[in-house]
Write a protein that binds this DNA or RNA. Structure first.
Lengths: 209, 209
DNA sequence: CGACAAGTGGGTCGAATGTCCCACACGAGG
DNA sequence: CCTCGTGTGGGACATTCGACCCACTTGTCG
């Protein structure tokens, strides 16, 4: 009998649940499918979690917390804003291409939350917005530009774009078409900024988190 | 006993299914929930359709065919490209605000198709692309501009944007924020076009459907 | 060693699901 | 009138689901 403390079992179950959702979809992620993936018994499931719903909630929160990275370009100095944005989006596309099922799982979880736990979906979205804001601020600072539209608005635009590009790629799986669209998107977003005249550059402390 | 020919019963069932999906989500659209909504017996369901899956397929195809309209601006002459795009997106947002559950249902159906009937999802996406192309061509022609990026790419960008804005609004239900984002989006997309010098204007026959 | 909490396994419950069956009600066509 | 094909109703089926229960093992701590 493999005796394992509850909290590690919880982690294992959450990880297994994510794998099942990714590979077979949320509606196939039954308690039995999850425990099979985690190689446990049903009893262990309900020992670790009150209900399936609680696990799904935890899964959303968990997966949400680890979405930190991505999108942030590798911050190369001296590149134009368009280049930085393009790099960022391309990096995201690479990540998407590497783990498409994961991103599809995220989408399904968002939609599930939208029906049953709206606040969770809003938290998720707020997280994306924060990352977008930071990336945009950084990109503007490093390329010597400033946004002509409110940062919050540009961030919303960027998030909407990544969501849309994600769906686009997930549906068509057309790398080249998605890349073209991403390039155009970067150029379009960059048009919402203008160069800061040399000398009036504001100190980059504003670009912090 | 209400004797009804099969084909009208099929239509009624599809309509009822859409209402159920919209109000309660795809996973709650069981055969029983649907026949209850349509006020029929279970036998009528399986007399009209082989299986639930067949109904869902038909629902996707059906709902897909009726998505024609929207996004196309009311084509006012003499307005700038940015204005036309803004109008188009605003019109879409209004539509979304008027029938949020329907659009949410479309999203769920797309995602379902993505897992089980990918070609259907691709058809749906191709349909969106076609509408976007037509709208963009029309808008450029009426505002005396031409796209500096390939039309197909700009269309992909526009579709991605509407998808993203849809998700954004569905999650946050913040009318003003979404409108701001839409305005910024219109401006950004418009930056991918440039005015056609007077005199070199191409005949607008190219703008036809 | 003995008691007790923590963790495990297997079986089971009621509810819901998709599907199917069969006896019946009609209207049309002979 | 009878018959036959198209619908219709009310169950019934096996399967799956989430949840739970209880008897059990194992480590820990006194």
């Amino acid at each position: 009998m493999a005796r394992t403390p509850v909290d590690v079992r919880r982690r294992e179950l959450i990880a297994a649940a994510l794998r099942v959702v990714a590979s077979r979809g949320l509606h196939e992620a039954s308690t039995r499918a999850i425990v099979a993936e985690a190689d446990m018994s049903l009893a262990s499931f309900h020992y670790a979690f009150e209900s399936r719903d609680e696990l799904i909630d935890r899964l959303i929160i968990d997966v949400l917390a680890k979405e930190e990275k991505a999108v942030l370009p590798d911050a190369l100095e001296g590149r134009s804003l368009t280049e930085l944005l393009t790099d960022g989006l391309m990096g995201y596309l690479d990540h998407l291409r590497a783990e498409p099922t994961r991103e599809q799982a995220m989408l399904e979880l968002t939609q599930h939350a939208l029906r049953t736990r709206r606040p969770l979906a809003q938290d998720q979205y707020a997280q994306y917005l924060r990352i977008a804001r930071e990336s945009l601020t950084l990109a503007a600072a490093h390329s010597g530009s400033r946004w002509t539209a409110p940062l919050e608005t540009v961030a919303q635009l960027l998030v909407a774009l990544t969501d849309g590009l994600t769906l686009n790629w997930l549906v068509n799986r057309d790398d080249e078409a998605s890349r073209e669209a991403a390039r155009a998107a970067a150029q379009a977003v960059a048009s919402l900024a203008q160069p800061v005249p040399a000398g009036t550059a504001r100190h980059s402390a504003e670009a912090a988190a």
